[in-house]
Amino acid sequence: MNKVLKQDACMEKIEELRNKMVAAAGQYGLSHPIVLHYSQELDRAHNKVILLETGTKDWERSLSF
């Protein structure tokens, strides 16, 4: 899989996680553990995109989501 496809997949994952986080925050409030979970997952996904963009080696082992 090439770099562009990996980035596209990460961006789709980011959008999915963002939507889940916003929905959970609306339903449970900002301090609910599920909202925190989605926020952390979203951070990991953003970090993965940054590693892809910078060309850092071994990014797949560095981050997982």
Rank of each mutant, 00 (worst) to 15 (best):
M1N: 08
N2Y: 03
V4T: 09
V4C: 02
L5F: 10
L5S: 10
L5I: 12
K6Y: 03
K6R: 07
K6E: 11
Q7V: 15
D8Y: 08
D8Q: 15
A9H: 08
A9W: 06
A9D: 05
A9V: 07
C10A: 06
C10E: 14
C10G: 05
M11T: 09
M11W: 09
M11C: 11
E12A: 12
E12V: 12
E12K: 10
K13A: 10
I14Q: 08
I14N: 03
I14M: 05
I14L: 07
E15G: 06
E16F: 05
E16L: 09
L17W: 01
L17D: 01
L17A: 00
R18A: 04
R18D: 05
R18V: 05
R18T: 08
R18M: 12
N19R: 12
N19L: 13
N19V: 04
K20E: 04
M21D: 02
V22D: 04
V22L: 07
V22A: 03
V22C: 00
A23D: 01
A23C: 02
A23R: 02
A23Q: 01
A25I: 01
A25M: 03
A25G: 02
G26F: 03
G26K: 06
G26N: 14
Q27V: 13
Q27H: 14
Y28H: 15
G29D: 07
G29F: 05
G29A: 07
G29Q: 09
L30S: 15
L30Y: 15
L30A: 15
S31R: 15
S31F: 14
S31L: 14
S31A: 15
H32A: 13
H32E: 07
H32Q: 11
H32C: 07
P33L: 03
P33K: 04
I34L: 14
I34W: 06
L36Y: 14
L36H: 11
H37E: 09
H37W: 01
Y38P: 00
S39C: 07
S39P: 03
Q40N: 04
Q40V: 03
L42C: 01
D43Y: 05
D43Q: 15
D43P: 03
R44F: 11
A45G: 05
A45T: 04
A45D: 05
A45H: 03
H46R: 15
H46E: 05
H46C: 10
H46N: 11
H46I: 14
N47F: 09
K48R: 11
K48F: 15
K48Y: 14
K48E: 13
V49Y: 02
V49E: 00
I50E: 10
I50Q: 07
I50T: 13
I50P: 03
L51P: 00
L51Q: 05
L51D: 04
L52V: 01
L52H: 00
L52S: 02
L52Y: 00
E53P: 00
E53L: 13
T54W: 12
T54E: 11
G55Q: 01
G55D: 00
G55P: 00
G55R: 00
T56G: 02
T56W: 06
K57P: 04
D58K: 10
D58Q: 10
D58E: 13
D58A: 13
D58H: 14
E60C: 08
E60A: 12
E60T: 08
E60G: 12
R61C: 13
R61V: 14
R61T: 14
R61M: 10
S62V: 11
S62E: 12
S62D: 09
L63G: 08
L63E: 11
L63C: 14
L63F: 11
L63A: 08
S64T: 11
S64W: 12
F65L: 14
F65T: 13
